[in-house]
Amino acid sequence: MTMKAVRYYSKKDIRVEDVAPPSGPLGDDMVLIEPLVCGICGTDLHEYIAGPIVTPATPHVYSGATLPQILGHEFSARVIETGRNVTHVKPGSRVSIQPLISPRDDYYGRRGLFHLSEKMACVGLSWEWGGMGERAVVNGYNVFPVPDTVSDVQAAMIEPAAVALYGVDRGGVTSGSSVLVSGVGPIGALVLLAVKAAGATTIFVSELNPNRRALAQQLVPEAIVFDPRETDALQLFRDHTEEGVGLDVALECVGAEASLNLCAEAVRRRGTVVQVGLHMKPAAVDAMLWALKDITVEATWCYPVQIWPRVASMIGAGILPVEKIVTATIRPEDVVEQGFEALLDPKASHMKILVDMKA
């Protein structure tokens, strides 16, 4: 018996092939799952363009996984079987996958900071299984049951939404905040939704791509959306804040130097800049400006894994409509052409592409 899986071999080499499914007795703390819907992430794109980066060319220090890698770390699933120690889900349970895997007993694990372990692995990137396969085995702590108010598509979006919500948390965005979201890729779009959910009342969006500006305006109609190349952004912020002091919080969601510096310029004295986007190279910053304004700069990595039920409840309540950023749903067979290549097309209007594993 075989199963279909999307496997990453190396740069520009992703294959849809038949592989052996998980077999043998299930570990006491493990769960056998059937992936339902799986997102393509920016991390997956980086691997495709320039990898292997985080996918393991040599056996992973903690998981032992090695290439080729079944992709997919943003996904929903149905439980097929559970190990005897797993009590929070049962066969048939619909779940969202929290993909981070790390020791429970190292320095960070003992403190509940599982996302900071130096040995961290990730389902779909550095683990034997991933969301773009018909079956997968994960740890009990990787599966979170979702209520009926959360669809399979929404459950697949909890992982990127967790990244976004963590950034908004770290910025201290609250009801009445004035906020800049710089960059509206998939994470920036979710940050925009999370900022709205947190109660921000003056929301600015900086984005170069006209398609993405249009989507941002649809997501939050009252947001002030602009192209930083064509707008005097600082004048715009002055015009919309008390005494022209600037904004409470700016969230950098691009990973670009110009975007980071715009955020530092945007905030008022004692404001907060949150680094959400990942920078692929060093950025030159005006550290003197940071000092003069007495600002706080927060940088984020992943998310605290305990955030899952909170994201699910926000989605279920309708205040975090994550499904609105999905621009296509495709079959696993079409993942390279209609998924990876479509997302890399600079003229395309795609934001988030999901793979329907049941299609």
Rank of each mutant, 00 (worst) to 15 (best):
C253P: 02
A291Q: 11
L289I: 00
V322M: 03
R331F: 02
G244E: 06
T241I: 10
W301N: 12
C253S: 12
R331S: 13
L260N: 07
E257H: 07
V276W: 01
A250P: 06
V274D: 06
Y303W: 15
L234N: 12
V245Q: 08
G244Y: 09
P332K: 08
L247E: 11
I330T: 12
R331A: 13
R331T: 04
M314K: 04
H279M: 14
V274Y: 08
V311Q: 10
A250F: 08
D248Y: 04
R269I: 14
I295L: 14
D286F: 01
G318K: 09
A283T: 09
E242M: 14
L236S: 07
V267S: 05
L262Y: 00
N261V: 10
L262Q: 15
E257A: 15
V311D: 05
D232M: 02
K281E: 11
T296N: 13
A264V: 15
V249Y: 11
L251N: 00
V311T: 06
L236R: 05
T300E: 13
L247R: 08
K324E: 14
A328I: 09
L247F: 11
L234I: 10
T300A: 10
D232Q: 09
Q306W: 14
A328N: 11
C253K: 01
G271I: 09
V285W: 03
R269D: 07
G318T: 01
E252S: 08
P332R: 10
A283W: 13
I315C: 04
G277D: 03
G318R: 09
L234K: 06
A258P: 05
V322Q: 03
D239A: 14
A258V: 11
V245A: 04
A312T: 01
Q275K: 05
I319T: 13
P332W: 03
P321H: 08
M314N: 00
L260R: 05
